[in-house]
C-alpha cells in the first residue's frame, strides 16, 4: 500500500466525507461489541472463587483504563503529526480525543474505587496505579483547559501539541516516581495478549470483546467530535472573514 495516499485524508473535506460514511458502521460495531462483551462478562461467566461477583467490574475497569492511556498516546501521535506536517485535522483530532480520554480516566478511577472497596476495604488508596491515573487525569484537565483558553486556533494547536509532548515525558517520569514512592496493593497486569494464562479463557474472551467495544466506541466518538471541531473551526474562520469584510 502506498503510505503517501494516507495523507490525502488530512484534507478536512476528504476526511469528513470518508469518516461520515464509515461512522454508522463504527457505531453499530461498538454497540454490538459492548453489549455482547458486557452481557457475556456480567451474566455468563462464573464468579471468582475469592472475589465473588465483584470481579465482573473488571469488564469495565480494564478496558477504560487501557483506553485512558492509549488515548493519550493517540493524542501524542496526532500532536506530532501536527507539529511536523501541519495537518489541521490531526490537531483537531487530538483536541477531540482529550475529553473522551478524561472521561475514560474517570471511569477507570470510579470503577477502580467500586472494585477496591470490597477487595481492599477502602474506596481510595494511594496505590501507585491509582495515583498515576489521578495524575493522568490532571494532565488531561490541563490539556483541555489550555485549548479552551486560547482564542487563536493555530496558536492553541501549537501550544497544546508542545504541552502534550512535554506532558508525556513528565507523565512517564511521574509513573516511575510514584512507583518509587509507594509499592502498592494492585494486582499485576491481569491481561496481556501474549500471557493469557494470567486469566482463564472464560474471563478472557468476553474481556477482549468488551475491549474491542471500547476501542470502537472511542473511534466513533472521536470521528464525531473531530468532524464537529472541523465544522466549528470553519465557522469561526467564516465569521472572522466576515468581520474583516
Amino acid at each position: 500500500m502506498n503510505l503517501n495516499a494516507l495523507w490525502e485524508y488530512a484534507n478536512p473535506l476528504k476526511f469528513m466525507r470518508t469518516t461520515e460514511r464509515a461512522l454508522p458502521y463504527f457505531w453499530v460495531a461498538a454497540v454490538v461489541c459492548l453489549v455482547v462483551g458486557l452481557v457475556w462478562g456480567f451474566f455468563f461467566t462464573p464468579d471468582d472463587f475469592r472475589q465473588g461477583s465483584t470481579v465482573k467490574i473488571f469488564y469495565l475497569h480494564v478496558p477504560s483504563a487501557m483506553m485512558a492511556i492509549n488515548i493519550w498516546v493517540m493524542m501524542l501521535i496526532t500532536s506530532l503529526v501536527w507539529i511536523v506536517r501541519r495537518h489541521h485535522v490531526s490537531a483537531l483530532a487530538a483536541r477531540a480525543a482529550a475529553p473522551i480520554g478524561a472521561v475514560m480516566t474517570v471511569i477507570a478511577l470510579a470503577t477502580g474505587a467500586i472494585w477496591g472497596q470490597p477487595m481492599w476495604g477502602t474506596w481510595w488508596a494511594w496505590d501507585p496505579r491509582l495515583t498515576s491515573f489521578l495524575i493522568l487525569f490532571l494532565f488531561y484537565l490541563g490539556y483541555i483547559a489550555l485549548w479552551e483558553a486560547i482564542e487563536n486556533d493555530d496558536t492553541a494547536a501549537d501550544l497544546t501539541a508542545v504541552l502534550c509532548l512535554v506532558g508525556s515525558v513528565f507523565a512517564l517520569l511521574s509513573r516511575y516516581a510514584v512507583n518509587f514512592w509507594n509499592q502498592g496493593l494492585h494486582q499485576g497486569a491481569s491481561l496481556s495478549l501474549d500471557k493469557k494464562e494470567n486469566v482463564a479463557d472464560v474471563f478472557w474472551f468476553p474481556a477482549l470483546v468488551s475491549i474491542a467495544g471500547f476501542v470502537l466506541l472511542f473511534i466513533a466518538l472521536v470521528i464525531l467530535r473531530t468532524n464537529t471541531e472541523i465544522r466549528a473551526r470553519r465557522m469561526r474562520a467564516l465569521l472572522a472573514r466576515e468581520r474583516l469584510g
Partner: peptide
C-alpha cells in the same frame, strides 16, 4: 489559575523525589 493547573502536574516527579 491555568498556569497552576498546567504546572502542578509537571511538578509531581520533582516533589516526590
Amino acid at each position: 489559575l491555568l498556569l497552576s493547573l498546567l504546572v502542578l502536574p509537571l511538578y509531581v516527579p520533582t516533589l516526590i523525589f
